[in-house]
């Protein structure tokens, strides 16, 4: 892991990886959305609104996965002082928050015709909303860090503590009598028919690759800002 601690080495890898992840991700995500929109059968009870699953589930996965990324990067930052870890955690925050918001909104849109409501305060929906607020808190703390590219320890600690919400989201449909149905895809298998499962997997893969590309772009921006910062300081000293 420390092989990539060197920003120069990281950039040598990140520069070609960014467009590769982006275009492959875009291809898969767009393909899965078209597949999902035009080539899946109508669902028994929900009818055509089942198609919303192809944007709702990937955004839920990335909203939660993003916070796990922040938590792991924050841990690496605090324990091993890895110079890129704080930058990575910070780069994940805005895409993660956006996906959490997309998840909440598409879920709300899906809930109206199927459940009969835009919103209920059940365990799953509430804990997902809390995740969105945690992202906002993290972004505020990280942006208040004193140095460019250097994420404060307060933000890192917040990132790690906030991770307790992830298992709560995951278990919420079991712990509380909830409006949201229980998990469809578990380690034991899936109760989603193959006709929906195949494009769903492609959508999750595609959006994940796009997420990776976005994080790399943001890390590269932060590293460049750091270089500008250092250069300006040197010029000021002369």
């Amino acid at each position: 892991m420390h092989r990539f601690a060197n920003p120069a080495r990281f950039l040598r890898l990140a520069r070609p990886l960014t467009p590769a992840l982006f275009w492959l991700g875009l291809l898969l995500a767009l393909g899965a959305c078209l597949w999902g929109l035009f080539a899946v059968p109508t669902e028994r009870l929900m009818g055509d609104t089942v198609k919303i699953i192809f944007v709702h589930v990937p955004s839920a996965w990335l909203g939660m996965g993003g916070w796990m990324g922040i938590a792991i990067a924050s841990l690496v930052q605090l324990v091993w002082r890895h110079p890129l870890a704080g930058i990575a955690a910070r780069a994940i925050a805005v895409p993660g928050a956006t996906f959490a918001a997309i998840c909440l909104m598409t879920g709300s849109i899906w809930g109206r015709p199927t459940w009969g409501t835009w919103w209920v305060w059940d365990g799953r929906l509430t804990s997902m909303l809390v995740l969105f607020f945690l992202y906002l808190g993290y972004i505020a703390l990280a942006n208040a860090s004193s140095e460019k590219g250097d994420t404060s320890r307060v933000a890192a600690v917040f990132g790690i503590i906030g991770a307790v919400n992830i298992p709560i989201i995951n278990r919420s449909v079991i712990w509380w009598e909830s409006q949201h149905q229980k998990a469809s895809i578990t380690l034991g298998g899936s109760s989603i028919d193959g006709a929906y499962l195949a494009p769903l997997f492609v959508a999750v893969a595609g959006f994940s690759l796009l997420f990776g590309a976005l994080v790399l772009m943001r890390m590269r921006a932060a590293l460049a800002e750091m270089r500008i910062d250092a250069r300006m300081r040197r010029m000021a000293d002369d």
Binding site: P41, I53, G116, T117, Q181, S191, D193, Y196
Partner: peptide, 13 residues
């Protein structure tokens, strides 16, 4: 409010 279960099944199946 109506509840959904975790199953997604095509109409014709």
């Amino acid at each position: 409010l109506a509840k959904h279960d975790e199953n997604y099944v095509p109409k014709e199946l």
